[in-house]
Design a protein around this nucleic acid. Structure first.
Length: 426
RNA sequence: GUGGCCGUAGCUCAGUUGGUUAGAGCGCCAGGUUGUGGCCCUGGAGGUCGGGGGUUCAAGUCCCCUCGGUCACCCCA
């Protein structure tokens, strides 16, 4: 039986736990970030893809049964048609599903932006509904594509003004060399079992790579002496990784080799990377991450297709911008604000006419006092006030007052307004 | 799922060992200026003190429950 059926007694309506509203006063920053991302990735041949916000739960279960995302964070339910669906916890699986369903010719490069859902308790930089932008590139195993993807994220952060971050890079090997490494690692961990933290002591076989990422002191000291995947790559993976590292250096993108970087999703092969914000005070400091997933398309029933991509968290990006005190371009300003205290007819007609002509114009309603209307004009940030009192209305003229300069108010005929505005705002 | 902290006006907060009609700043509205914003002055509107129950002559204040927020663990964006 549903435990939560509505607002509790006397409670006001509010957004669900773990979600938030972005009000117009703050949405300018979101628009700026999204526009910047679209510019960077579309300029590299990536096309926008939109997929459903929810999918059959099977789509996401392919992410990996041992991941927390699937085990305990899925926001799923049975719908009225008895379908078991889930709000997407990430978008890579959805894009892969779309790739398999539509079979575009490769190489195929797509970018996305939108909401993700994971059912967890909220904290700084982490929400139940959160937002990501990302890219996915299918059909090439070329390490230079890994470098392209990492460079795009780098360029995007740089374009926004984020400087305090580390690019962490690792290689997880592939289906040939990872099993051997995994056996080596399990062997090592079993030998040091007593030093591991309580949670991981009995789960070595379960997900040994995860232990490398554990933050507890016991696991960490064991991890430091553990065999490293990068030292046990097969020839092909080693060559691939070598080319990736070489490419990053060639493009002057600073990075840190982090052999313990595992990441939360099981499908990664070879290259994995994460952009860690170093200016953030909150515990959640991953600005974004990604990697190569050469086996996922086939695992989901598609043709054997290598792929690489990343996802970047909007909320984390905004936190980083805030931490670095990056001033974002404010919201769009108005060109003019019509102040009409002669009945409102001129305001009605002139505002509409100017908007059709392409100007950004607003006005007051309810026949407020001149003082109140000028106050509203001032607050709107409009460059000019277009003043219509009884005198102007009778004469068929309009007063033009510059709200941001100490210039005299001038009067022009109604028909000269458009050219006059063009001249002043040009 | 577990734990810490916090819920008083639109926002940020004050409110004494429980004690009269619950306050401030900012914001909003109006007036000062019978047609002119920003600065200033005056006034006004706006509160089930998160909700429910209890103790008490008396509860914003104490107790219990509950809802919500926030941060952290886990994990990640």
């Amino acid at each position: 039986m549903a435990r939560h059926t509505g607002p509790s007694n006397g409670a006001e309506l509010r957004h669900p736990p773990g979600t938030f509203d972005v009000m117009p006063a703050e949405s300018g920053a979101w628009q700026h970030v999204l526009a910047t991302f679209a510019r960077v990735v579309s300029g590299a041949g990536y096309g926008l893809i939109l997929t459903p916000t929810f999918e059959d739960i099977g789509v996401f279960q392919r992410i990996g049964a041992s991941t927390d995302v699937v085990r305990k964070e899925m926001y799923d339910f049975v719908d009225k048609g008895q379908r078991h669906v889930a709000l997407r916890p990430e978008q890579t699986a959805s894009v892969v599903r779309a790739f398999i369903q539509h079979r575009p010719t490769t190489p195929w490069k797509a970018w996305y932006a939108g909401s993700q859902f994971r059912f967890e308790r909220q904290q700084a930089g982490r929400y139940r509904e959160f937002h990501q932008v990302g890219v996915e590139a299918f059909g090439s195993a070329d390490p230079d594509l890994d470098v392209e993807v990492m460079a795009l994220a780098w360029e995007f952060y740089r374009a926004l003004g984020i400087t305090r971050m580390d690019l962490l890079v690792n290689s997880l090997g592939d289906s040939r060399c990872r099993p051997a490494y995994r056996r080596l690692l399990v062997e090592y961990l079993l030998a040091h079992q007593g030093d591991l933290c309580d949670e991981h002591r009995d789960r070595i076989e379960d997900n040994p790579l995860r232990i490398l990422d554990c933050k507890r002191p016991g696991c960490r000291s064991v991890a430091e002496g553990a065999p490293r995947q990068v030292d046990h790559l097969c020839d092909e993976c080693a060559a691939h990784f070598g080319r990736v590292v070489e490419g990053l250096a060639a493009l002057s993108i600073p990075f840190t080799l982090q052999p313990t970087l595992v990441r939360g999703l099981d499908y990664y092969t070879r290259t994995t990377f994460e952009y860690a914000g170093t200016g953030l005070e909150s515990a959640q400091n991953a600005l974004g991450g990604g990697g190569r997933y050469d086996g996922l398309v086939a695992a989901m029933g598609g043709p054997d297709t290598p792929a690489v991509g990343f996802a970047l968290g909007m909320e984390r990006i905004l936190l980083a911008l805030d931490a670095e005190q990056v001033a974002l371009a404010g919201g769009a300003r108005l060109d003019a604000f019509v102040v009409d205290f002669a009945g409102g007819t001129v305001a009605r007609d002139l505002t509409a006419r100017l908007r059709v002509a392409g100007f950004r114009v607003d006005r007051s309603f309810d026949g407020r006092s001149p003082k109140a209307q000028f106050k509203a004009a001032d607050r709107s940030g409009a460059r000019l006030a277009l003043v219509v009192g009884p005198d102007e209305a009778a004469a068929g003229t309009v007063g033009i007052k510059d709200l941001q300069a100490a210039a005299e108010q001038v009067t022009v005929g109604m028909e000269e307004i458009v050219p006059e505005l063009s001249r002043r705002l040009g």
